[in-house]
Simulated scan of single mutants.
Amino acid sequence: MFYWFLKFVAIGPAVRAAFRPRAEGTEHVPATGAAILASNHLSAADWIFMPLQLKRRVTFLAKAEYFTGTGLKGAAQRAFFSGAGQVPIDRSSASAAEGAIRTGIRTLHEGKVLGIYPEGTRSPDGRLFRGKIGVARMALETGAPVIPVAMVYRKRKLPFGKRITRVTVRFGAPLDFSRYEGMAGDRFVERSITDEIMYEIMTLSGQEYVDVYGATVKKSMDATGASAPDVVARLQPPPDEAADRAPTTLAG
């Protein structure tokens, strides 16, 4: 109930009035049953804009710290993130990635819509970074279709030099990986599936693709003080090799 209060009363109307988000391809999201919404990640507000475009509730995986705070602030934070459709995951343990995958699989087995960011972090510089294979594992173990999603932000000029941000959420056609049933755990298959998903996101968003993990780039930026483009230039393979490693779709 609180989720719908946030969506239609507390947050939704204000967000729509301020940003006027547009949606394309919402018909690709199934009306019932499990589905994975795999999106690029450009802003901390992505998880607000995307669900506003859909009739169904979208569940996201959120860091456990949002649910463990103390005092009045902690209680308010727990209520907000729980009500907004977020599920806590512990990212501090050695098995954090496996725990997140298992939580996502459980959510999908409950017939829910799971929102996920395959890059694993917000883009360091607006480009699309390499996807992690957890999304493929979830799709293979549950049979849920994967709907690629692109968040597109554009600045629009207003009189007197002011600018506003216009948001478009694009939902692509569902990707069905049932032909790989029973192959969960095969890292080559999971890597190929993930690359196919990232290719579709790239096509929808129009972003440049970078064959490096975004988290690796951010870690190097923090350690060296270098900019994201400088770090990427150092980490990416030479141009001739990069062409071979760009996301590709699998043959049918």
Rank of each mutant, 00 (worst) to 15 (best):
M1S: 10
W4N: 15
A10D: 06
A10T: 11
I11R: 01
G12R: 01
A18E: 08
P21H: 08
R22T: 00
R22F: 00
G25V: 02
G25Q: 06
T26I: 13
E27C: 08
P30D: 13
A31G: 12
A31N: 13
G33A: 05
L37I: 08
L37S: 04
H41I: 01
S43G: 10
I48H: 05
F49M: 06
R56G: 10
F60W: 14
L61E: 04
E65C: 09
Y66W: 11
Y66H: 14
F67S: 07
T68I: 08
G69Y: 12
G74Q: 12
A76V: 14
A76Q: 03
R78E: 13
R78A: 10
R78G: 05
G85Q: 03
V87L: 11
D90V: 09
R91G: 11
S92A: 10
S93F: 03
S93Q: 14
A94N: 15
S95H: 09
S95G: 03
A97G: 13
E98G: 05
G99M: 06
A100P: 06
R102W: 03
I105D: 04
E110M: 09
G111S: 07
G120L: 09
T121R: 12
T121W: 04
P124D: 11
P124G: 08
G126D: 11
L128A: 06
L128C: 07
G131Q: 01
G134N: 03
G134H: 03
V135Q: 00
M138H: 03
T142D: 08
A144D: 05
I147P: 03
P148W: 02
M151P: 01
R154M: 05
K155V: 02
R156Q: 14
R156A: 10
L158F: 11
P159E: 14
F160V: 14
G161I: 11
I164C: 09
I164G: 12
T165P: 04
R166P: 01
T168L: 12
G172E: 08
A173W: 04
P174I: 03
F177Q: 01
F177Y: 15
F177G: 00
E181R: 15
G182A: 08
M183D: 04
R187N: 15
F188V: 07
F188H: 11
S192H: 06
I193H: 02
E196Q: 14
E196A: 15
M198G: 07
Y199F: 07
Y199M: 05
T203C: 13
T203L: 14
S205E: 07
G206Q: 10
Q207E: 15
E208P: 11
D211M: 13
G214A: 15
G214Y: 01
A215F: 01
T216Y: 09
K219M: 06
M221L: 08
M221W: 08
D222C: 03
D222P: 00
D230T: 12
V231M: 14
V232H: 02
R234P: 02
R234F: 11
L235I: 10
Q236Y: 02
P237Q: 13
P237G: 10
P239F: 08
P239W: 06
E241P: 00
A243N: 01
D244T: 08
D244N: 09
A246G: 07
A251W: 00
G252V: 02
